[in-house]
């Protein structure tokens, strides 16, 4: 399944640094995020876009991870030639990350559709 089924995400920017949050819909899924959304996988996912290091901050109480990616915005929002100079669309791209299907675990979206809180 895609990360999009487990988590939501928002991108922010400062200079040439992009900041992407990944937040579990269901806090019970947080360990999956911790296990499969590693800085190494994020860096690999954004190969060709992110040229610097990727640092991950963990916020287990919020069921969230926060990624800080350096040299990610074409030299900086104010000088980038990119169509999306702020990198606002990066969060949606990260949600396309593949997460292994696990036995017995329904995705948060399916759960929401069936009315589970």
């Amino acid at each position: 399944m895609k990360l999009r089924e487990l988590a939501h995400s928002r991108t922010g920017d400062k200079g040439d640094i992009s900041n992407i949050s990944v937040i579990a819909y269901d806090p019970a899924d947080y360990p999956l995020l911790e296990q499969y959304v590693t800085p190494e996988r994020v860096k690999e996912h954004f190969a060709g876009i992110v040229h610097g290091k990727v640092v991950r901050y963990a916020l287990p109480a919020l069921g969230a991870l926060n990624f800080v990616m350096e040299r990610a915005l074409g030299g900086g929002v104010t000088r980038s030639l990119a169509l999306d100079a702020h990198g606002k669309c990066l969060s949606s791209a990260l949600l396309a990350l593949d997460i292994p299907e696990l036995d017995g675990r329904r995705s948060a979206i399916t759960a929401a559709e069936t009315g589970r809180p």
Partner: peptide, 16 residues
């Protein structure tokens, strides 16, 4: 809670 979590982490880098 979801809208607040997204905004709490918006471009803050190190949350600590």
């Amino acid at each position: 809670a979801q809208t607040c979590k997204e905004q709490l982490l918006y471009e803050i880098h190190d949350p600590g």
